[in-house]
Design a binder for these strands. Structure first.
Lengths: 252, 252
DNA sequence: AAGTGGTCTAGACCACTAC
DNA sequence: TAGTGGTCTAGACCACTTA
């Protein structure tokens, strides 16, 4: 029945962690979709049989992890990946002078493939698992600056097609969310010096083999489930990869 | 008198933000030094005339920003930059296979200089302001992988000497903290492809002009005061610059 | 006006640490 | 045992949003 309090998993040690895990489970089960509001705090407190304060502490952590977003007077929402300020959470290339702009993305190629050993390790699939592989070029201020090669497991992206990818209305992560119910909530990135392939050199206006910034990313959904592998090559003549540590919200 | 409640600045809008700012002010005034415990929550709540819950919320945020560290049963401490797990908060170079190790640092040169226009802009000093400039080489697994050129304003580091720098017992940021009362709490970094100078090439085992990973860092103390400018060149043949986004504490 | 999240209180009890 | 932070309660009142 709806007024009954849910049984919380006994793992986690504390009430609010149990509540948090229950909320994560509900999110993973798509009980509420991206952009939707979750129930009011009072209702959730009743549902889980805890006080408001405890329920709020669980939501506090999910908000701190950018999984939920609170809006006073409106409600608490499942985070979306839209063309708003949150976009730059995952997009870290800015011009030398600090100017931030949205990239113009074009699909260069798309194909079905098998996971290589390295990609399989990163995506936690078996080697040779069916994947989709596609390449984007990204232009900033009218110039192609980034070429990214993306691999996603077919298991999580059933029926992904080149057409759907090409015609998506918004950002890639928003597309994952709307079309496949996959919410990217965190990433691991490794950055090093790489070399432009012949294709990349052509797109980036560099010689084949020219040094480029190589960014290797694994994107994760809830519960640290890897959902995307991405290898980007960036022409950093005019652009930088930025990485702030713990810039607080200015504290006042 | 000691039992009187302090007057809190009316700015900030909420009680806990006022408390947080008062704590930041006390930290900036070195009322408690790096590594020291601040008073118990109950005492601080009395001092600021708020309830424990409100005081805790202020400390919660300072802990989230790694400015304070709580230890259950022990107390709450001013964050230190020691050779513990917190070291890797600011040190982001790891081997390709993921192995993390502490660098062996050697001072290559040290001199007094004037701030260039670019450095002055980053450090928010006037152009030509007196600075110390020094270069370190960092070895990982016995091989020099990083050469970093560091600039700090003389105004904030009075009487810094090459000897003191060379003989410091711990990490550089711990040295800043112990000897100059400067606590590095956040950094901004920009990463791009750069070129090894002749000196750097020699130290890194690369040809002069070879492509290297260039990391430009500005380090900040409380209230976003810039205290150090640093330009690092990294040989990324065997090492990566890592950058995780919002990897939660695994959620229980 | 009604509903939402935001802040704050004044405790209680628990878990951990040091002596 | 005494002192610390960690968790949790059961509300109150405020600020914001929508209607």
């Amino acid at each position: 029945m709806s007024t009954m309090t849910e049984t919380l998993a006994a793992v986690g040690g504390t009430r609010y962690k149990e509540v948090k895990n229950a909320l994560l489970a509900a999110l993973a089960a798509q009980e509420w979709k991206g952009g939707e509001a979750i129930p009011a705090e009072k209702r959730l407190a009743e549902r889980f049989g805890v006080s408001i304060g405890t329920l709020r502490k669980a939501i506090d952590e999910l908000c701190a992890e950018n999984i939920l977003i609170r809006h006073q007077g409106l409600g608490t929402f499942v985070a979306m990946h839209q063309r708003d300020r949150h976009f730059f959470r995952f997009f870290r290339i800015v011009r030398n002078d600090g100017d931030k702009t949205y990239p113009t993305v074009s699909l260069v190629n798309f194909r079905k493939a098998k996971a290589t050993r390295e990609v399989a390790a990163r995506l936690q699939t078996g080697e040779g698992a069916p994947v989709f592989q596609f390449t984007n070029q990204l232009a900033l201020h009218g110039v192609v600056v980034i070429v990214e090669s993306i691999v996603v497991p077919q298991a999580r992206f059933p029926d992904l097609t080149e057409t759907a990818l090409r015609n998506r209305p918004s950002t890639l992560y928003n597309f994952y969310q709307d079309s496949f119910g996959i919410n990217v909530v965190s990433t691991d990135e490794r950055v090093r010096v790489g070399q432009a392939s012949e294709l990349e050199g052509g797109l980036l206006g560099l010689a084949s083999g020219a040094p480029v910034l190589e960014v290797e990313r694994v994107a994760y959904s809830y519960n640290e489930q890897p959902v995307e592998y991405r290898l980007s090559h960036v022409n950093t003549q005019e652009y930088d990869y930025v990485s702030s540590y713990a810039r607080p919200s200015s504290g006042g």
